[in-house]
Write a protein that binds this DNA or RNA. Structure first.
Lengths: 259, 259
DNA sequence: ATGTCTTTGTGAACGCGTGCACAAAGATGG
DNA sequence: CCATCTTTGTGCACGCGTTCACAAAGACAT
């Protein structure tokens, strides 16, 4: 091992900043909408408004891709759609597997946004033998015993994990061992993966908690400047009917609170 | 990354950086797990590892909340769970409505991570009359005609939008008009909201596209746009050293095995 | 009580992302 | 062909977030 030389979280690729990459899909969606309306060109100002960003930021983002605009006119919509699609790798077909066909997995399988963007659900995988063969979104669920074979037969490099938290890491390990190098994780767990494997996390609960923070702030400052906040009590569980063996991808239970 | 989030220059934030707020739920989850194992105290190093972050970052994050640690020992798990919960506003009950009970909406309704974090699904709302009354996750779906009444009767301030893209903005407008001030948007649309309303966006397709970008990089970027598929790797990363001043000095590509 | 050892809390440096402001580039009209 | 007008592309400055590195604080052993 060298010193700290090449110790990089594999986040930056070539010269395109990660923040820019994260916005490219946003631009692409806005451009696609324009394309469908047969709009030939668009200015950075208009496109930025459609994408919900600053126009200067948009121009700078595009400058990382190259100079695809015409000064005095704007950007050619079709050309830009193509360039961004190519940059994002959407001009090729990406077979994807979804592991864990619970409520969320089924929702993902049915999600139309995948197919329309170059992603193809190659297989649905679940550990429950009762699910095997049952069609979800028109695709028969396969048992996780065949995970490795499915990955290899289909040349899958992107995997989606929608399992309960406890199963996520083992599934992840098997996916990686089978050749998957990009993982979209919906399970509320920190996955550890070897170098070179990308993991993106989507956590519904976390998003809500962030909203709650801001919400509390808003409520607190207009109502009670008093430090305690608005009625900091009542944490009733009411989990009466929710006794279900809900394999909502969450392994946690309510926090215990002292005082 | 909220979309419509106005970047108001601090003032209200009580000093807690947004990036820190976004990590608090992560810490909370790790701490909850420790709490369940009856671990009394934890060091910043251990907790950081469990949460998947840097220990210095974690300590700095906690420093914004106050000095809850003991030097030489670490942090009291229970106490920290309580402090973070309180800071995030999870010590109170947050009624939430989910609008759009399709596959995704149903998945969200069944998601266990909500109830365990102080969130309570107060109502499920759908525009389809055929859905009305039908129970999802034990909760009867209500028609969107009653949206305003539902919001007001339940004192809902957080709404989740899981509708098709076309319906998102109208639904958003109605939610906001009825008093909702925080929105979690799953529809692939840029929502425009008035000042003071927080919007967070979760877009499954965008996440996959970002993964595809990195995946393409890993696989060898010069692939022809005609979609020859991710065949064998063609290493073309050659001219990417620290030559050009404009491009990032990052020329290293993790030695990834091509499957 | 005193010294040692562990771990926190934070000052400071650094790098990334953002937004301003403007010059360059090209279209458009006379 | 020249003047003017529009819009891009970008140099620069600023602020936020991350990380390092270390002094301060407290526990613990003797």
């Amino acid at each position: 091992m060298a010193t700290g030389r090449t110790h990089r979280p594999a986040t930056r690729s070539r010269g395109i900043p990660e923040a820019t990459v994260a916005r490219l899909p946003l631009y692409l969606r806005a451009l696609t909408a324009l394309s469908e309306r047969s709009v030939p060109t668009v200015s950075s100002e208009e496109l930025a408004a459609a994408a919900g960003v600053n126009s200067a930021k948009l121009r700078k983002d595009f400058s990382y891709l190259g100079s695809y605009g015409t000064r005095g006119v704007g950007y050619d919509v079709e050309y830009l759609v193509y360039q961004i699609s190519r940059e994002l790798g959407l001009t090729q077909d990406w077979p994807v597997v979804i592991v864990g066909i619970g409520n969320l997995g089924a929702a993902l399988a049915n999600y139309g946004g995948f197919a329309s963007r170059g992603f193809r659900v190659a297989a649905l995988i679940d550990a429950d033998p009762a699910m095997a063969g049952k069609p979800v979104a028109g695709i028969p669920v396969q048992h996780s015993d065949d995970l490795e074979k499915i990955i290899q037969d289909n040349g899958v490099s992107i995997g989606v994990i929608a399992t309960p938290a406890g199963a996520a890491q083992p599934v992840c390990d098997r996916l990686v061992a089978a050749g998957v190098t990009s993982i979209l994780n919906f399970a509320p767990t920190v996955l550890s993966v070897p170098e070179g494997v990308d993991v993106r996390k989507v956590d519904l609960s976390i998003e809500l908690q962030i909203l709650a923070f801001h919400e509390q702030r808003k409520a607190g400052e207009e109502a009670h400047p008093d430090g305690t906040g608005p009625a900091a009590v009542t944490r009733e569980e009411s989990g009466d009917s929710a006794e279900s063996a809900d394999q909502g991808p969450d392994g946690d239970v309510p926090a215990v609170m002292p005082a």
